[in-house]
Nucleic acid binder design. Structure first.
Length: 462
RNA sequence: CGGGACGUGGCGCAGUCUGGUAGCGCACCUCGUUCGGGACGAGGGGGUCGGUGGUUCGAAUCCACUCGUCCCGACCA
């Protein structure tokens, strides 16, 4: 690609690396709201509406506007990269599934159990279909149809797809929608020992995934259902407005993975053990004796579930006939696990964990733009020239930047930029330019520096 | 699914009790003065009150039904 295609003029640019468009705000569809729509109660819902990220279509179903969709894709991409990093392979399964996959006799047998939460549809031939609330049946059928030998396992596959659960009571905006974007992964192994290896990969991968988003997620033992054992964990992040009460050892609160460079083919059990050996429990799993023993090390807080992994053995492989032949020529029903991350929910969860009275405070990794340029006086030639130059320069260096070039008052620009929560604000006005300075404001700390335009731009390149 | 609310220009609300064909703030458009944390003045556009059916001379207001949305609870990524 010729370089001229990358460094162009006034209409924003696509970085060849990220394919994320920087933007002049005068051309961007960013319908911010000064007042909160009355239906929004919690912070993330309020702020997502006010920041022009989403609009509601019907109860629990939302459209994603440019700003919101950009964040959603950033989160999705982090999830994708971390799944790929453990050898989990991306596929894409349909949203609409044939009911036979779920019915007794022809499928898993949970068609009747699932209840009205599953959206059932008939096609024109009067065949029963459904909008998938999850994909265990589908992936198992795919695997079963082609896997023959023990050499075909282990396998890890995932997809990132919209799901639908017809919640009785959708609420909290995107956090508890009926339609939601979810990463769900599935593991296929020859036996439980191998299954644990797959489970551990996911466990550690999840810790890394959330950490990359600027979150501390705490794994907590969850109900294992009919299988039993210790192979089901929910991952929760702490937020004052969280949906459930949790209790854990205080070491979890800011815990980071000690080893950044993990060998996923090595033994992950010690890492998993280092997490699971410490106390952490959701409301229904709390153990008061254990908590008493912790004394001052106990922390109680509120949490939001952002992931759930579990191992379910042959629950689906058996009815759907996912069988391979082992080295002795014996038929083995494969052992499976499934591993979910609520991608769209994470957008709301991150906001719950990171906002203030003025708006959202995006962690760097998921911020829709790295920086915003505020032109304090759009009518001033010198000021506009300085802003244009800074914008074009940052673009050419690959910095994703939102340039507020609108001809509105400064106050409105400050308010909008704080609301949408980009990490850095480059504030340029005629007054500062007289002494060749601009203001660089850091959204999360609130710190402002009066520095030269050049050094401000240099800082944004880091 | 139980309990509770609400539905009036894009957003936030008043008007409903005590029927007389719609109002305020913000936003929007024009002009002028402004312009470093959501300006000021003047002028202007936009709604027939979620829908349907009743009562009435007359309904945003009363009655019935219906649709939608939100909140609490049970349930869940």
């Amino acid at each position: 690609m010729p370089s001229s295609a990358r460094t162009h003029t006034r209409s924003g640019i696509c970085s060849p690396l990220t394919n994320e468009a920087s933007m002049r705000l005068s051309r961007y569809f960013l319908p911010t709201l000064r007042e909160t729509p009355s239906e929004a109660e919690i912070a993330s819902h309020r702020l997502m509406l006010r920041a022009g990220m989403i609009r509601q279509s019907s109860a629990g179903i939302y459209s994603w506007l440019p700003l919101g969709y950009k964040v959603l894709r950033k989160i999705e991409q982090i999830v994708r990269e971390e799944q790929n990093a453990i050898g989990c392979q991306e596929i894409l399964m349909p949203t609409i599934q044939p009911a036979d996959l779920w019915k007794e006799g022809t499928g898993s047998g949970r068609y009747d159990d699932y209840g009205p939460e599953m959206l059932r549809i008939k096609d024109r031939h009067d065949r029963d279909m459904l909008y998938g609330p999850t994909n265990e049946e589908q992936i198992t059928e795919i695997f079963a149809a082609s896997a023959r030998s023990y050499r075909d396992v282990p396998k890890l596959m995932y997809h990132i797809q919209w799901k639908f659960r017809d919640e009785v009571r959708p609420r909290f905006g995107i956090m508890r929608g009926r339609e939601f974007l979810m990463k769900d992964a599935y593991s296929f192994d020859l036996n439980a020992t191998a299954g644990r290896i797959s489970y551990n990969k996911m466990f550690v991968s999840y810790l890394r995934t959330y950490e990359r988003m600027g979150l501390t997620a705490i794994p907590m033992a969850a109900d294992t259902g009919p299988i039993g054992g210790d192979m089901s964990h929910e991952f929760l992040i702490l937020a004052d407005t969280g949906e459930s009460e949790i209790a854990c050892h205080k070491d979890f609160v800011d815990r980071k993975l000690a080893d950044k460079d993990i060998d996923f083919d090595g033994d992950l059990q010690p890492i998993v053990d280092s997490y699971t050996s410490q106390y952490a429990a959701t409301d229904e799993k709390r153990d008061l004796d254990a908590e008493k023993a912790l004394g001052d090390d106990l922390v109680t807080a509120r949490g939001i579930e952002v992931g759930h992994i579990f191992y379910f053995g042959t629950k689906y492989s058996k009815p759907l006939g996912a069988v391979v032949t082992d080295s002795d020529g014996k038929e083995i029903t494969v052992e499976m696990g499934s591993y979910g991350i609520g991608v769209s929910r994470l957008v709301g969860a991150i906001i719950e964990a990171s906002h203030d009275d003025d708006g959202i405070i995006w962690p760097d990794a998921v911020a829709p733009f790295k920086a915003g340029i505020i032109n304090l006086k759009a009518g001033d030639d010198a000021c506009t020239q300085a802003c244009d130059d800074a914008y074009n320069n940052l673009l050419s260096k690959g910095v994703d930047v939102l340039y507020d070039d609108r001809n509105t008052r400064a106050g409105a620009k400050f308010a909008d930029m704080d609301l949408i929560g980009v990490p850095w604000q480059l504030i340029i006005g005629p007054r500062g330019l007289k002494s060749r300075t601009v203001e660089l404001k850091h959204r999360s700390s609130g710190e402002r520096e009066e520095i030269s335009l050049e050094s401000a731009q240099t800082q944004l390149l880091v």
